[in-house]
Design a protein around this nucleic acid. Sequence first.
RNA 1: GGCGGUGUAGCUCAGUCGGUUAGAGCGGCGGCUUCAUAAGCCGUAGGUCGGCAGUUCGAGUCUGCCCACCGCUACCA
Length: 520
Amino acid sequence: MSRAFYVTTPIYYVNADPHLGHAYGTSLADTLARYHRLAGEETYFLTGSDEHGEKIAEVAASEGTTPQSVADRYSNAFRETWETIGFSFDQFIRTTDPHHCDVVQTILQRIYDAGQIEFREYEGLYCVGCERFLTERDMEGGKCRDHEREPERQKESNYFFKMSEHFEWLAETLEARPDLIRPERYRNEVLGMLRDESGLGDLCISRPKTRLDWGIELPFDSNYVCYVWFDALINYLTGIGYPDGPNFEKYWASAEHVIGKDILKPHAVFWPCMLRAIGLPPYRHLDVTGFWNVEGRKLSKSLGNAVSPLALKERFGFDALRYFLLRDLAFGSDSDFTEAALVRRINADLANNLGNLVSRTLNMTARYAGGTVPEPGPTGPDEQAIAQLAATTAAQVDESVRRCEPHHALECIFALSDAVNRYLEEQAPWKIAKEQADGWEKRVATTLYTSCQALRSLALLLAPFLPETAPVLLERLGIPDALESARLPDDAARWDALAPGTPTQKGAALFPRIEIEKSN
RNA sequence: GGCGGUGUAGCUCAGUCGGUUAGAGCGGCGGCUUCAUAAGCCGUAGGUCGGCAGUUCGAGUCUGCCCACCGCUACCA
């Protein structure tokens, strides 16, 4: 029985166009999905859009249009961008899909029947300008910060999910499963939230329609709609056919959510508690990413420095961009996106190291071996060392990907490429070919054979990270179908899979070097 | 304020259970080489491991205090 793998991106809130941060999270999930597929696991990759809630209603009101049309516009922008880029998601879910709304209502009713939802009257300070209740933080000198007016004391009744009943269980679960939330610092943060109880209580899951009607109606009270987070999180279940889809159990048991650090609390606290109330086990991993700054500044709508993923794809190619994102951001930390750093990374790793290795290997194969993978002569310790390193690298990549450390996986892969460059330098087949001493042809053949095998390993290991480039490389190695039957990590460690006699093609530069521009 | 994190070569960062001369990549500099994308390879950088004190035979690696920056505590990936 093959293993399963289920990965999700956050569902993107439809009040802005896709930017670098969205592209990063989706690239990570896409890479994980591709890796696990190549590892022979039944993989399901879900992304989508989160479309309910006040902010969308506000945007619609300000534009004089309907929330649905705002949601349609941005949801399409995300879906089309992701399709253009070529992400390998299996489904693009929308929280306004009728099926999703049905599932949300089913779950609400079930939790309600189980006594996990309570109707409570709430009295607080309501700001007419904000159209919401204020907390102390929203006020200064007794007035709303935004509107500088005194809020009114109002009563409102709402439904609350008795979330706090699950906190003890959640804390124990986090203690028992150190890799549930990773990197570890975010797990610690969540434990902190649970410990000091600052502000964390039961979760208000309703909004009266008099205030907000853009949401899913509560099945047990048509005067209310569901709080947007409660609705949104459930997409992760809807997407794989909850409650009775044939694959639901299989996928849910291997669920892995990729999120940004800004939405840690809903995913690390609300969601596990909700799942427990629903009667489901928690997800397997929550992978929390850091943020990208741009040229030293925070990514922000008001600064207008949001970087369009499509524009970057146009200029640099998506494989290169994605490589930079996954390589340069230590998983979990923040990092700075600069064009200078991007160009440096592309040139140093993709052009000089990998791309040039491909060029020189395939060029020499054409020149000294008639354009086919040569029949090797006897191998020595140098060849065995390369083969050994490929095997080690495959194992390291597997481990790193499973720990959600893409930067480390890539570091290992490029160390292999680096080692092959050095190996070539030591063997110097061009020199041997020139001197033509006894048996020179066999020696050159052995060297080129070894390099070609290494390129094959590199292409397989890179396939999840560079989905456009890896197939090109495999094609040049004369094995265009290699990915169809490949199994990572073991196949990347095989050293006999590229048969002598296989025709190779030199081709153009895989990643042309980018010359320094004075654009900024 | 509270909780947490970070501070290691010019830049980005690794540094497991404390132990010989503190590492990598990039950049810079010098040399070699020409199969290759002016790419590659070799050598080099002498950094008080934020500061002070302590524990120890011995601390970047543990303890305390201090300084700086950052995150969370408030539904922007």
